[in-house]
């Protein structure tokens, strides 16, 4: 993450092996004034977090090397790893995966495909964005 010069700016890490998903998510998050960084798998995401812990993480499930779930378990095991709000964003769209993600420490869960309204409302739900009236 580049220094933004804005101390109040929240930081967000988008973890997905699809460059397209990262690009779409980045565009949405930046429009809500987040300082966005990207990682293409769980291993790189862990490296990013060890350098600087973000306020929020958007996390894919299936990725090469370290999966989203493995990343989350390792993250939550770190001393400062409980702080980021983690929102899974995956095409694993069933009860079993959702339950497993929550029990491993995810704060919210998005089933792909997603749109701007869904992402915004999930971020409001975890307290990373102010609630807007519809």
């Amino acid at each position: 993450m580049e220094p933004s010069g804005n101390a109040a700016m929240k930081t967000f890490l988008v973890v997905d092996d699809s460059a397209l998903v990262r690009k779409i998510a980045r565009r949405m998050l930046e429009s809500w004034a987040f300082d966005v960084d990207e990682a293409e798998d769980g291993q790189r995401a862990l490296e990013r977090c060890s350098r600087s812990m973000p306020d929020g993480i958007l996390l894919d499930w299936n990725m090469p090397q370290v999966t989203g779930l493995e990343f989350l378990e390792k993250l939550r095991g770190q001393t400062d790893g409980t702080a980021p709000k983690v929102v899974f964003c995956t095409s694993m769209n069933d009860m079993g995966h959702i339950a497993r993600a929550l029990s491993s420490g995810a704060d919210e869960y998005i089933m792909k495909p997603f749109d701007e309204d869904i992402l915004r409302e999930k971020l409001e739900e975890v307290g990373l964005l102010e609630k807007s009236e519809t």
């Binding site: 769209n93 959702i98 409302e121």
Partner: peptide
Amino acid sequence: NQFEVQRGLPVHYLLRYFTQ
């Protein structure tokens, strides 16, 4: 549908009060 249950509904409510 999948979009509707993600609009405004916290995921723990989805787990508790819906079946797929």
